[in-house]
Amino acid sequence: MNAFRLAGDMTHLISVLVLLLKIHTIKSCAGISLKTQELYALVFATRYLDIFTDFISLYNTVMKLIFLGSSFSIVWYMRRHKLVQRSYDKDHDTFRHQLLVLPCLILALLIHEQFTFKEVMWTFSIYLEAVAILPQLVLLQRTRNIDNLTGQYVFFLGAYRSLYILNWIYRYFTEPHYVHWITWISGLVQTLLYADFFYYYISSWKNNVKLTLPA
């Protein structure tokens, strides 16, 4: 465990807690894409298949349980909770996320490190996570006033993977044979998708103006 990866995991945890805080306390999911939340639940479900078979560390297991629990409870809140549902902008959250799932599954069946069920599912989760934010970014472009918690949620979610890239660079130089193109390229694509959001988010923060993304 290096500082970049720990910082990345903590940033990811913060993004999830910010979102849970928003939904659980003010019972609002304004500006949040249910499609992205469902994709993330699928990402964790297919990535952590080994949670009960391979024990790596207490930290690893606890974090997996937190990510699984939070992503599924957020989907539950947005689908079932009457009060939260009222603030869900379903007219604008219309990204066809099936168009993301199928290509990622096909790609995982074509490009993977081992052709086993667990490995293909894990690879699928890596590809899917790279594009899972798209419905959320599209919704933000359609959302007039993005509230702070939503902006912070997306910012931390994007920041965590960029910290992971530093972790991969660090591990490449410090651990022999640590080469994983699939994770690296997917992580890079994922981070690049946030590039324009980061630009608008940081400039809105610097000029102290409301965050708005150009349509």
Partner: peptide, 10 residues
């Protein structure tokens, strides 16, 4: 063999 090392990441 045991799980490859990189699976220790989240």
């Amino acid at each position: 063999e045991s799980e490859p090392s990189y699976k220790d990441e989240l």
